[in-house]
Structure formats: C-alpha cells, structure tokens
Computed example of a mutant assay.
Amino acid sequence: MKAATVSQLKKELQHRNTDELLQLCLRLARFKKENKELLTYLLFESDSEAGYIETVKAEVDEQFELINTNSFFYIKKSARKILRTLKKYIRYSGNKETEVALLLYFCEKLGDFNPSIKRNTTLMNLYQRQVDYLEKKIGLLHEDLQYDYGLLLEELKP
C-alpha cells in the first residue's frame, strides 16, 4: 500500500466531521508510541514551551544518571540513545529555540560527564558534531538569542 501525500490527506480530512476526526486521531494514537507522544505534546505541553524544555531536561538528567560507566562502549551507546530521544522531542516541538536550548543542555551534560569523554575519540567526535551543528542553528535565531546562546556555546567548545 502506497501512502498518500500530505496535501491529499489534508483535503480528505477537510471533508470529515468532528466525530470522525476524533476517532481517526484516537485510532492513530493507538498504533505507535511516537504518535501518542506527539499528541500529548500538542494537547498538553505546546502551550508552555519553557515547561516542556524543563520536562525534557529532567528526563535527560535521569538518562545520564542511568549510564553504565564500566566501559566507554556503554557510555557511547547511552549517549547516542539520549541524543536520539532528544532529537525526537525536538521534532515534536519544531521550535528552533527549543532545539538550541536542549542540544546545548545535552552538550553541557556530556562535557561534564565523568569519566571524561576527552579520553574517547568517538565521544569527542559526537560532542564536536553537536557543537558544530549548534553553531549553525544559533546563526538562524534572533540577534539577541544569538548573542545569549553564543556565549553558552563558547563555554562548551573544547
């Protein structure tokens, strides 16, 4: 089965009544965890972006606490998993400020992690890629935010 385009879906959804749309949304939410998470963000958390950022930061803190520090292999796997989760939450928001704030927080946590990531090339490369990515993203923000986030980014550079 070939999926319809977004414009085709939009046209079809315009012809449905409110009850049908509600049923379609609930059925969609039943099938995939990401759909439920996105719906939760849109319904409950999109009003307060600052609260959403704090919630995600708390989850990142928890995930960093759970990292197995016995070997760099486990640290790498966990760091990638945390970054994957963070990118998913960033996609839900779609806000550039949120993306920069959360990635800065991730880099800060990874840079302060113990044992130091400086002893592992792969982790340093992961860290450096995120810093470079942040540099590009900060350039797209408003001038005042560019300055504020730029200062934070300078502290993170190795």
Rank of each mutant, 00 (worst) to 15 (best):
A3C: 06
A3T: 12
A3R: 04
A4M: 08
A4Y: 04
V6Q: 14
V6C: 10
S7F: 04
Q8P: 14
Q8D: 14
Q8H: 08
Q8K: 06
L9V: 01
L9I: 04
L9C: 02
K10T: 09
E12G: 06
H15A: 06
N17Y: 00
T18K: 08
T18Y: 05
L21K: 01
L24G: 08
C25R: 05
L26I: 09
L26V: 08
R27H: 05
L28W: 04
L28F: 01
A29T: 02
R30H: 12
F31V: 00
F31M: 07
E34A: 06
N35D: 05
E37P: 14
E37R: 10
L38P: 07
L38N: 07
L39K: 01
T40W: 06
Y41W: 12
L42K: 07
L42Y: 01
F44G: 05
E45G: 00
D47K: 07
D47W: 04
Y52E: 11
Y52N: 09
Y52D: 15
Y52A: 09
I53T: 02
E54Y: 02
T55P: 12
V56H: 12
A58S: 03
E62D: 12
F64T: 03
L66T: 11
L66Y: 04
I67E: 01
F72G: 04
F73Q: 15
F73T: 12
Y74W: 07
Y74D: 13
Y74N: 12
S78F: 00
A79S: 04
R80F: 11
R80A: 05
R80Q: 11
R80I: 07
K81G: 05
I82E: 09
R84H: 12
R84N: 15
T85K: 10
T85R: 12
L86W: 04
K88A: 05
K88M: 09
Y89D: 15
Y89G: 08
I90N: 15
R91T: 13
Y92A: 11
Y92N: 15
Y92F: 11
Y92S: 15
S93I: 03
S93L: 05
G94W: 08
N95H: 12
E97R: 11
E97V: 05
E97Q: 13
T98Q: 14
T98V: 14
E99W: 13
V100R: 07
V100Q: 04
A101W: 08
A101H: 09
A101M: 06
L102Q: 02
L104F: 06
Y105M: 11
F106P: 14
C107S: 13
E108Q: 10
E108C: 11
G111H: 10
N114F: 08
P115E: 08
I117E: 10
K118V: 03
K118C: 02
R119T: 13
N120F: 04
T121M: 03
T121L: 02
L123S: 01
L123G: 06
M124S: 06
M124V: 06
Y127T: 09
R129F: 00
Q130A: 00
D132I: 00
E135P: 09
K136Q: 14
K136W: 02
K136E: 13
I138Y: 06
G139L: 03
G139H: 00
L140A: 08
L141G: 01
L141T: 00
L141P: 03
E143N: 13
Q146G: 02
D148Q: 10
Y149C: 03
G150N: 02
L151W: 14
L152D: 14
L152T: 06
L152F: 10
L153V: 00
L153H: 07
L156K: 00
L156H: 01
K157P: 15
